[in-house]
Design a protein around this nucleic acid. Structure first.
Length: 279
DNA sequence: CCGCTGTCCTGCCAGC
DNA sequence: TGCTGGCAGGACAGCG
C-alpha cells in the first residue's frame, strides 16, 4: 500500500519501461473503481503515445502525446504490473489491461491494474485542466520540495489542535505521508503522535520536517516498502519494511531505549510509537 | 470551520 | 479443519 515512496518507485519503474510506448488497446474488466471509469476511457487512451511519467502526491500521472493525462491512484491494495505477454488467465481483481504496440526497444507488451479492494482509481485529465481538477485542487505541498521547510510545517501545525499525526497525514496540508511514514517520522523526531499539533515547538517542527524528508528519501532509495501486496512495476518487491523502527513492531523493544513499542488507535488507524522516547 | 467517526471493498490471519 | 472477527499502506462524506 503505497505511500509516497512506493508511488515514486512505481513511477520510476514505469518511466524506465513504458515511455514512448504506443497504447494499442485498453480493456476494462470492471469499471466500478473508487471513481467509476468514464465512458470514453478506452477511446481516450487508444492510439496515444506515452510521453512522460510524473507523480503528484500519491497519484501517478501518465502524460500522453495529446493534451491528456491518465491519472492512477493505487489506493490501499492497487498494483501496476508490466508483462511481456498477456497472461493466460486474468486474476480476479485485474481490472484494467493496457496493451502496447510492439516496438524494438522493449519487450513489455501489457500493463495490468490490479486492485482487490478497489480503493484505487484511474481517471482522465489534461495538462491544461489538471491543476483545477477535483483530485488535485486541494492538495498541499510535496514533502520533498524545498518549499516544505520547518517554517512552513510550524505554521501548519500552529493552526490546528488535532493530534500532530493526523495533521501530517492530512493531504491538504502536506501530501504523501501515510500511516507508516507518519509513525516513523514522529519516532525519529521524538514527538508523541497524540500531541496537539499547536503544542509542537518551532524546533520540533524543524526536526519533524527533516525526519519526514529523510525517512521518505531512505524509503525511495530502497525501492519503497512492502507490507503485504505492494509490488513494484517491474514485478519484484521493495524491501524498506526491514528498516521500520516502530511500524508493525508492537511489543518489540524500541531500537533506541528497549522500551516495548506501544500501539494505539487514532482516527481508526493504528499508531505505533515509543512511550519513552516520544514526548 | 474543525475534529473525529464511519464507510467504501476484499483478503488474510489469529484465535477459538 | 473451519469459522469469525478484526485489521490492512487511503480518502472522503457527514456528523456534532
Amino acid at each position: 500500500m503505497p505511500e509516497l515512496p512506493e508511488v515514486e518507485t512505481v513511477c520510476r519503474g514505469l518511466a524506465q519501461n513504458i515511455i514512448h510506448k504506443h497504447i494499442s488497446k485498453v480493456t476494462a474488466r470492471r469499471r466500478d473503481l473508487r471513481v467509476p471509469l468514464p465512458a470514453n476511457f478506452e477511446k481516450a487512451l487508444e492510439k496515444k503515445e506515452i510521453t512522460r511519467i510524473a507523480r503528484r502526491a500519491k497519484y501517478i500521472l501518465i502524460h500522453l502525446d495529446n493534451d491528456a493525462i491518465l491519472v492512477i491512484h493505487l489506493g490501499m491494495s492497487g498494483t501496476l504490473i508490466l508483462h511481456e505477454k498477456l497472461p493466460k488467465t486474468f486474476r480476479k481483481h485485474d481490472h484494467v489491461i493496457i496493451e502496447f504496440a510492439p516496438d524494438k526497444k522493449s519487450k513489455i507488451g501489457y500493463m495490468v491494474f490490479h486492485d482487490p479492494r478497489r480503493f484505487g482509481l484511474m481517471a482522465l485529465t489534461s495538462k491544461t485542466t489538471f491543476a483545477k481538477h477535483k483530485l488535485f485542487v486541494n492538495l498541499g505541498p510535496e514533502p520533498l520540495d524545498k518549499k516544505l521547510n520547518g517554517e512552513y510545517l510550524y505554521t501548519i501545525l500552529q493552526s490546528s489542535k488535532a493530534p500532530v499525526k493526523s495533521v501530517i497525514m492530512d493531504q491538504r496540508k502536506l501530501v504523501g505521508v501515510g500511516n507508516i511514514y507518519a509513525c516513523e517520522a514522529l519516532f525519529r523526531a521524538h514527538i508523541h503522535p497524540e500531541r496537539a499539533a499547536n503544542k509542537v515547538t518551532q524546533k520540533e517542527a524543524t526536526a519533524l520536517v527533516v525526519q519526514i524528508k529523510k525517512v521518505l528519501e531512505a524509503a525511495i532509495k530502497s525501492g519503497g516498502s512492502t507490507v503485504r501486496d505492494y509490488v513494484r512495476s517491474s514485478g519484484d518487491s521493495g524491501y524498506f519494511q526491514h528498516h521500520f523502527s516502530v511500524y508493525g513492531r508492537k511489543g518489540l523493544p524500541c531500537l533506541s531505549c528497549k522500551t516495548p513499542v506501544s500501539v494505539i488507535r487514532q482516527s481508526g488507524r493504528s499508531t505505533f510509537f515509543c512511550a519513552n522516547c516520544q514526548k
